[in-house]
Design a protein around this nucleic acid. Structure first.
Length: 251
DNA sequence: CCATTAAGAGTGT
DNA sequence: ACACTCTTAATGG
């Protein structure tokens, strides 16, 4: 994808000009950015740290003590819980502007989830103490966070239902629609690259089942695949198939 | 640039 | 779940 010219980029990455202030941030979905006009929030953001994360890198470890809160500035992330025999259950996927690690607040001393970068990411980090202080002082921000929590709860309830009441095929379709809705398509394929294994970990099945359902859907001309890439051909038919479970949408 | 290897996608049992 | 083939991506000269 990238041209063959080699040594130009080597020096660039060690420089860190990019601790751009939140005021200059282009990320309109971020709760902090949304409330940046408050002077209290603006001051709070001075303590922000920016972290770069390579693809595959884990930046929150389940069971580790809670130290702070992450916002995704750029890139995509998977949030997961590890089950009994190291089997991982992907709880959700996150993109720009989303919050990771928010459950550790209040009584929680330890992270209940792990988070790993699906692509090269840059994250914004705030310490637990800073976040707790700002939430006491800034109702508008706290309210926005509460809305986020409510939405998260709705999603997780929907997920319980999908895992307990849907067939494998329906869960796979549900997963495809979710990822497609959230990340969209680019030139006919879902813009987020996931392995079959990761689809399985989200849908609560095995890799083999995912592959089989995918090839069935492919035969039925509902989707198309090219390597890891998945394209949705007939969105409305797919929706129809799970409509009796009336999933109401999460973003 | 090509050759070798490793990783992941598919399929049958 | 396992074994196997086939395809694609990564590595190294």
């Amino acid at each position: 994808m990238i041209s063959t010219s080699s040594n130009i980029s080597t020096s660039a990455k060690s420089i860190s000009p990019a601790n751009t202030a939140c005021t200059a941030c282009t990320n309109e979905y971020c709760l902090i950015k949304k409330n940046i006009n408050s002077s209290v929030v603006a001051k709070f953001t001075e303590h922000r740290k920016q972290i770069r994360c390579k693809k595959g890198q884990q930046f929150i470890m389940e069971g580790a003590p809670v130290t702070g809160l992450f916002f995704v500035l750029k890139g995509r992330v998977k949030v997961l819980r590890t089950g009994l025999l190291g089997k991982e259950q992907i709880v959700r996927f996150a993109k720009e502007g989303e919050i990771i690690g928010h459950r550790g607040f209040g009584t929680g001393e330890f992270y209940s989830i792990s988070a790993v970068a699906l692509e090269d990411c840059t994250l914004c980090y705030f310490s637990k103490e800073d976040v707790q202080a700002i939430l006491q002082k800034e109702p508008a921000l706290t309210y926005d966070l509460m809305l986020f929590y409510a939405n998260e709860l709705n999603n997780s309830e929907a997920k319980v239902k999908s895992l307990s009441q849907m067939t494998v095929r329906e869960r796979v379709i549900d997963t495809l629609l979710y990822v497609n809705r959230k990340f969209g398509q680019q030139s006919g394929f879902i813009s987020l690259l996931l392995s079959r294994r990761e689809y399985a970990d989200y849908a609560g099945t095995t890799e083999e089942q995912i592959i089989r359902v995918f090839s069935a859907l492919k035969k039925e001309k509902l989707i198309t695949t090219k390597g890891k890439r998945i394209g949705i051909i007939n969105n409305s038919l797919l929706k129809l198939e799970i409509s009796e479970h009336n999933f109401y949408l999460d973003s």
